[in-house]
Amino acid sequence: MRRPLSIHLVKGSHLEIIYKVVGRGTEKLAQVKVQEKIDVIGPLGHGYALTAGKTILVGGGTGIASLAFLAATLKNKYNQVPIVLIGARNKDELLCSEAFEKIGCTVKVATDDGSQGFHGLVTELFREMAAIFSTHPNMVYACGPLPMLRELVRLCRHFRIPCEVSLEEHMGCGVGACMGCVVKGTKGEYLRVCKDGPVFNANEVVL
């Protein structure tokens, strides 16, 4: 089976992806040698809806990887860089902060053990910031573990900030045919993460 992976950055004719080795599939992928050819289908599904003005990116774990390409695209399109909040278990598992700094983003870090930046969850960091915003952001974009997304969506509703979330699921076909990778929609129907997402407006889905 194939593995659904997000694009981290586009550099000329190169795509960068960041993934964590979690099982046999990603383990095999990690053994691929330089110059070895692999078969890729993509890009698939719907990405983030681009929004001008003040935006915030919130990423947890490897989920942060998919947000760098968004940050770069927002900068190119609107000449405005988002604020980036990165959550990780500890400073050793912290990913991508340099990539965002290179784009010109303000990066704030939260670690569970306090080994770098804010001591606590990235959603707690977000809540502290949101409470003192002078102007609300036009959009919060998020990718990360489900509990993080749930809490973030709850906070965004509370502060009345629009939010988009990028979801992960085990996938079959990747093109919307097999109905394997679904998430419950707010109208009660099941939406396909591969085709209707992976990015959804927080109002569309029940997490």
Partner: peptide
């Protein structure tokens, strides 16, 4: 509507589905 998630589970040489 179909079944609740999860609906897919990869196994050795196979795929379990409960769509």
């Amino acid at each position: 509507l179909g079944n609740p998630q999860p609906r897919l589970w990869e196994t050795q040489g196979g795929l379990l589905n409960s769509i």
